[in-house]
């Protein structure tokens, strides 16, 4: 330990910056959710739609994007699915 280190706060003490970072992430997330105006049936509908898609295509959770846009007149439900690579798809078929 150098002399200089004696005057600096120990790393283990510097937990305030960890606290701040965790809070910033959490609160941003909670605020976004608080303003969420999606209908209450949305999570269930999402699961069902995913189930139907997976009957035909093998997609990851993050390959499917559900979004609701709120306009003054209407709400727009947007669903976009990134299909797997065509090459991967062929290989998958060959293997079966």
């Amino acid at each position: 330990m150098g002399l200089w280190d004696m005057f600096r706060p120990r790393a283990q003490d510097n937990s305030a910056s960890v606290a701040k970072e965790r809070l910033q992430i959490l609160i941003a997330h909670e605020r976004a959710r608080g303003q969420d105006k999606t209908p209450h049936y949305f999570p269930e509908m999402r699961e069902e739609i995913l189930g139907v898609i997976r009957k035909y295509v093998d997609v990851d959770d993050d390959a499917v994007r559900f979004e609701v846009d709120h306009n003054e007149q209407y709400d727009l439900f947007e669903l976009s699915i990134t299909l797997p690579d065509r090459q991967d798809d062929r290989r998958a078929k060959k293997n079966t």
Partner: peptide, 16 residues
Amino acid sequence: RVGTGEMLSVEDMQEI
């Protein structure tokens, strides 16, 4: 304790 980095500072809390 803020000085030693173990407590959130006034600035941190205001920012959050």
